[in-house]
C-alpha cells in the first residue's frame, strides 16, 4: 500500500507541473485556436534562462521564478507579433508548420549556442524530502506542484472574473463579434500568447532544480502537454490541471507496476483513444 501511495504521489506531483505546462498551451489554443508546437522549446528556454540567470546572480531558482516568467512573457509577446499573427487567418496546416519550424529553429539554435551538455543547478533541494506517513515527498517537486496549482488557479480567476479574461473568452468564442464589441483582438491574442508562454517559462524554472537542462528537454514535455490538453479539453484550464494529474499518476503507476518504459506508450494510447472517442476532452465543451 505504501508503494502505491508513493507511486501515486510521485505521479501527482509531476502531474501538477504537466498541468502548468499544459495550461499555457490550452490558453493559447482556447483563445487563438493555435496549437503551439514550439511550446516545449519555451519550457527549455525557461530552464536555460533560470540556469544562466542563476549563474550570473547566484540567486536560487525559486527567486528567479518571477524574472524568468516575465522574460518568457516578453518572448511570447514578441513571437506572437512577429510570427503567429501572420498565420492567424490561414489553414491549420500553415499554423502547424509555422510552429513546427519555430520549434526546430529554437532547438537547433539552443543546441548550437549552448551545446548538448546536460547542465544541472546544484541545490541542496535535489535530495531534500519531507515524510508524510509512509510516503516521502521531494521538497523540490512539492514546491513545483504548489506553485503550479496557485498559478493555474490565478489564471482561472483571471479568465472568469476580470475584464481582460472576459474579453479573452469573447475573442475565443467568436472573433467577429468580439471585434464588433470593440475588443482589440490583436492585443488579446498577444496577451494570451504571452501569458501562455510566461507560464511554461515558470514551469521551466520550477523544474530546473530537479531536471537536467539541455536543448532537447522540451520535446517530451511538449508531447505530454498535447495529450493533457486534448484530455482535459482544449481551452479548458481546469481540464489541463486535472488532465495533467491524471497523466502523471497513470504514468507513475504504469512505471511502478507494469514496466518503466511503457509509461510513455500508455500516454500516447490514451491520446489516440481520446481523439477518437471523445475529442472534446473529459471536461466537455471548451470552456476558457
Amino acid at each position: 500500500m505504501a508503494i502505491f501511495l508513493q507511486a501515486a504521489t510521485n505521479g501527482l506531483l509531476l502531474g501538477g507541473v504537466y498541468g502548468l505546462v499544459s495550461a499555457g498551451l490550452t490558453l493559447i489554443f482556447g483563445v487563438m485556436r493555435i496549437v503551439n508546437f514550439a511550446h516545449g522549446e519555451f519550457l527549455m528556454l525557461g530552464m536555460f534562462a533560470t540556469y544562466w540567470l542563476g549563474r550570473a546572480s547566484g540567486l536560487h531558482p525559486y527567486v528567479l521564478l518571477v524574472p524568468v516568467g516575465v522574460l518568457m512573457f516578453g518572448v511570447g509577446l514578441l513571437v506572437q507579433r512577429a510570427l503567429i499573427d501572420r498565420v492567424l487567418g490561414r489553414t491549420d496546416e500553415a499554423q502547424i508548420l509555422l510552429t513546427v519550424g519555430l520549434s526546430a529553429f529554437l532547438q537547433g539554435a539552443a543546441l548550437f549556442v549552448w551545446g548538448a551538455d546536460y547542465r544541472t543547478i546544484p541545490t541542496p533541494l535535489a535530495s531534500a524530502s519531507v515524510a508524510v506517513g509512509p510516503v516521502y515527498l521531494s521538497v523540490a517537486r512539492l514546491v513545483a506542484f504548489g506553485v503550479a496549482v496557485v498559478l493555474a488557479a490565478g489564471l482561472y480567476v483571471l479568465l472568469v472574473r476580470t475584464d481582460l479574461g472576459r474579453a479573452m473568452r469573447a475573442a475565443a468564442e467568436n472573433r467577429e463579434v468580439a471585434l464588433l464589441l470593440g475588443i482589440d483582438t490583436g492585443r488579446i491574442y498577444r496577451l494570451a500568447f504571452g501569458i501562455g508562454t510566461g507560464l511554461v517559462g515558470v514551469a521551466g524554472a520550477l523544474m530546473a532544480p530537479v531536471l537536467a537542462t539541455f536543448p532537447t528537454v522540451g520535446t517530451l514535455f511538449a508531447l505530454t502537454a498535447f495529450v493533457v490538453v486534448v484530455l482535459g479539453g482544449m481551452g479548458d484550464i481546469v481540464g489541463a490541471m486535472i488532465g495533467g494529474m491524471i497523466i502523471g499518476v497513470t504514468e507513475a503507476l504504469i512505471a511502478t507496476y507494469v514496466a518503466l518504459d511503457l509509461a510513455p506508450l500508455a500516454t500516447f494510447l490514451i491520446f489516440l483513444l481520446i481523439l477518437l472517442v471523445r475529442p472534446q476532452g473529459l471536461l466537455g465543451k471548451g470552456r476558457v
Binding site: 509555422l98 519555430l102 520549434s103 529553429f105 537547433g108 543546441l111 548550437f112
Partner: peptide, 25 residues
C-alpha cells in the same frame, strides 16, 4: 563551416520552413 557542433542545420531548416510558410507557401 561550423564544425561538428550540432544544431546549426536544424535551426536553419526550421528557419527555412517558417520563411516558406510566411512568404512562399
Amino acid at each position: 563551416a561550423l564544425g561538428s557542433r550540432g544544431g546549426a542545420s536544424t535551426a536553419l531548416y526550421g528557419l527555412l520552413l517558417m520563411v516558406t510558410v510566411l512568404l512562399r507557401p
